[in-house]
């Protein structure tokens, strides 16, 4: 999978690049509009991560260019700007997702995965991990072909954990992922524990192996042993 990261903040870009590269993505990075447009002309990408405020112009310029060229790239805007207007303008210009800074790298990763799944969607949308099958469209989960009773939120959590396989996920990152728009108001992240516990129990009861490991002092990790 090939990604293009357009971001002028070097430190942030390096962290994103590192996190994604470890996940079998090829992530190229440019820090201005001009270089970005050059790259887009020559190569095709599966996904473009776009910062809106760039030293030589607005990120919307790139969106317009992509639209004109009828490029099919998936685009995720990553921006510190968070007004309804910029969001709407971004979506109107063809962006697929909008992530406000600051965000967790794990969140960015699952958004990219979800976007690529949607783009490559051919009749079915299934995430499989060993004995676990998740059908995203019908919102069902099977363990060894046995359907389990699971809530929407637990599926969301499961996808988040599997998507970030072998990564330590902090309690706050999980909480923010699960609470969505409400995250900014939520001060207490203790509910994460209850969700993890329930999900673990449901998977284990259905005969799945125990992939969810807790990491001391930090959070949890999905690990294939």
């Amino acid at each position: 999978m090939k990604l293009l990261l357009i971001e002028d903040e070097k430190e942030l870009a390096l962290s994103i690049q590192k996190y994604l590269t470890d996940k079998d993505f090829v992530c190229e990075w440019v820090n201005n509009t001009k270089d970005a447009l050059d790259k887009i002309f020559i190569y095709d990408y599966d996904c473009i991560l776009l910062d809106l405020m760039l030293p030589d112009g607005n990120g919307f310029k790139i969106l317009k260019e992509l639209k004109q060229q009828n490029k099919a790239e998936g685009i995720i805007i990553i921006s510190a700007k968070e007004t309804l207007e910029t969001r709407i303008e971004g979506f109107n210009l063809g962006a697929d997702d909008y992530l406000t800074k600051p965000f967790h790298l794990s969140e960015l990763l699952v958004r990219i995965q979800a976007l690529i799944r949607r783009k490559n969607f051919k009749g079915s949308n299934i995430v499989a991990f060993n004995e676990i099958y998740i059908d995203i469209l019908s919102k069902t989960v099977k363990v060894d072909n046995n359907k389990i009773d699971i809530t929407k939120k637990e599926i969301d959590l499961l996808l988040y954990l599997i998507g970030n396989e072998n990564r330590v996920l902090s309690k706050s990152a999980i909480a923010e992922h699960l609470s969505g728009d409400m995250a900014d108001m939520l001060d207490n992240h203790d509910f994460v524990y209850a969700h993890i516990k329930n999900l673990k129990k449901k998977l284990n009861d259905a005969g799945s192996r125990d992939y969810i490991k807790s990491v001391y002092g930090l959070g949890y990790k999905w690990k294939n042993e």
């Binding site: 903040e9 942030l12 996190y19 800074k101 600051p102 790298l105 930090l218």
Partner: peptide
Amino acid sequence: QTPLAVFQAKIDTLIQRSDVTREQSEILG
């Protein structure tokens, strides 16, 4: 927002390291 984003990203990167001790992971948490 931007320095916070960098801060957050760096911590996210740091907690992935396999050589983090128990004591360090408490601090990171």
